[in-house]
Design a binder for these strands. Structure first.
Lengths: 320, 320
DNA sequence: CGGGTAAATGCTCATTTTGAGCATATATCG
DNA sequence: CGATATATGCTCAAAATGAGCATTTACCCG
């Protein structure tokens, strides 16, 4: 027999939010400056400690975000609770925590918003600033060559053949060398691999070939958020949380491409959206798109009641 | 500017595990007795507070589970961090926490194991003991009629037409009245709906038509675990964590059916498993299955390196 | 004003992937 | 031996997917 309620352990609990938006074909994340960080790691996610006054975790998060950025959140979803900052096999870990063996947890959230008015000293950044190799819309990013070369070197430097094979397998699996190609959802696995290989500033790398660093473990949280969002748009109509009330199919496609980092076949994309019943026509068109005027569409909320898994199953294709 | 590290908030942090297995065609969960609970809620999941001595959250969890049940864990995955036990709109909530405004978090995990030897005072229970309406292998469970009748009554009793419609929509969406049929992944949504409708003992219901209750919010955790597992088997080969080293395709199918709660078309199931390259033949057969002897198969680990999303996309069908 | 360019749309077609079933093989049981 | 039960092989039609071709309708440029 044991007690139903855990006894006191009194760890520190923080709340952090990866607040994502998509404006002008570019996926964005809301960042704030963070004091007391090493050179080049002064950017971070809005975050703050859980306080007794917070009625719930999520309400506490919203409070912190509003206080720090002025942004009010719509769609919010819990991502993961990070607990052990020094767990990385590489040892290094992120900034030490001088609280004598006390745990420092951080409950990370994903939030999707429409508006993009940077308030206070917060700023919207393209999320490919932090993960440049994740953007394949213009083809395989050139920086990937240098990156994978370093990864291969790291694999070669493994202490034993067993470990060398394991590392090689992971590289192939996450960066797509093996039979499988690129899987856009494995954002976190790629970041963790780069971390373990010591190729990110957070793990002691001297340069930021693998992207701009962030404070503490915030880049890990952001990677988790991107991976989750990239997966989720396939079976839930969450993209529409990022879209304005009316939009063209072309705009919708460019947002999806921006999020997933890959290009899609235009005609098939519209067919998919149409047959899923995700949108409906308005009687307006817009000529702002460049060529023939496009019809403005709106999200059909009813689809939530109709289909079991409404989303945009992205194909693997790439086309124009 | 703000501090990188959250200031002290000192909430209580607990760890809990939904440890699942599948033996003899029945999906199981490992439970322990919990003291100090109301009548009928003395069953719970292995759990304990996070302690400073725990190197990581997951290690802390493993330690508690071994101490309480003797079971050592293989596959472990974080599920969700529950923070606010009294958040339910219904007010009631689960057992009060007498710690003066202090938060009590609980980080819940999903674990998959093979062996099923109940140690100490822990016990393996069919998980349909807690969610009888989730088992549709023998067709639509009769108890569902009574349950949905009560749900409908609850919807009718809504304070206003707006809310009534909302409740009706949710019932249709989760229990499958609308165009969409039954979605086996919505375990948590169904439980939460029943909770809000006051139909589970945790929310004050006098009977357990909606299944056996559990201590504090453990049934919510279990529901989260089942939903996650049911979803995950479709795109990751996690079922094999539950299977013995060699097995027949029939056994594999029955385990998948037990987990998902629905029956599958046998020939199509084998075709799927085969063409996904998930298993390979051994040169042994077994005659223990009743009819013609079946070939024993084993999981092909290499598939993890080959396919992007190896899993068992369950069809919606039901057949023999 | 006519041609060039850029989307937006409409449709077609070959492949794959599903969902369902029929038919056959090979044990055990009474 | 015949009934029964599960394992396995194969077929077929319908639906979903991946790739393109062809048209429509703006705007821009000279």
């Amino acid at each position: 027999m044991r007690e139903a309620e855990p006894r006191a352990a009194a760890p520190l609990v923080g709340l952090a939010a990866a607040i994502l938006a998509a404006t002008l074909d570019e996926p964005r994340v809301l960042t704030v400056p963070v004091a007391g960080q090493p050179e080049g790691r002064g950017e971070g996610l809005p975050a703050g400690p859980l306080e007794p006054a917070h009625p719930t975790l999520e309400r506490g998060l919203r409070a912190w975000v509003e206080r720090q950025t002025g942004q009010s959140l719509g769609y919010v979803e819990q991502l993961y609770t990070f607990g052990d900052r020094n767990r990385r096999p590489g040892g290094e870990g992120a900034g030490g925590k001088g609280n004598g063996g006390q745990h420092a947890l951080s409950v990370a959230y994903l939030a999707l918003v429409r508006e993009a008015r940077p308030a206070a000293d917060s700023a919207w950044q393209s999320w490919y600033r932090y993960f440049p190799y994740e953007d394949r819309r213009a083809g395989r990013p050139p920086s990937l060559d240098a990156l994978t070369a370093r990864l291969e070197a790291w694999a070669e430097a493994a202490p034993n053949p067993e470990e060398r094979r394991r590392r090689g397998d992971r590289i192939g699996l996450t960066f797509g060398a093996a039979g499988s190609g690129w899987n856009e959802e494995r954002v976190l696995e790629r970041y963790e691999l780069l971390f373990e290989a010591g190729l990110v500033p957070e793990a002691g790398a001297p340069d930021s070939l693998a992207g701009q660093a962030m404070a503490v473990d915030h880049r890990r949280m952001l990677a988790t958020a991107l991976g989750r969002l990239r997966g989720k748009i396939k079976y839930r109509p969450v993209v529409f949380e990022l879209m304005p009330p009316v939009f063209t199919l072309g705009q919708l496609q460019r947002v999806v491409e921006a999020l997933s980092g890959i290009l899609l076949h235009k005609q098939n994309f519209r067919r998919l959206v149409a047959q899923q019943g995700l949108v409906e026509e308005t009687d307006a068109v817009t000529a702002e798109t460049g060529g023939r005027p496009a019809r403005l569409m709106r999200f059909r909320r009813e689809v939530l009641l109709e289909r079991p898994a409404p989303g945009l199953r992205l194909p693997s294709s790439r086309a124009g």
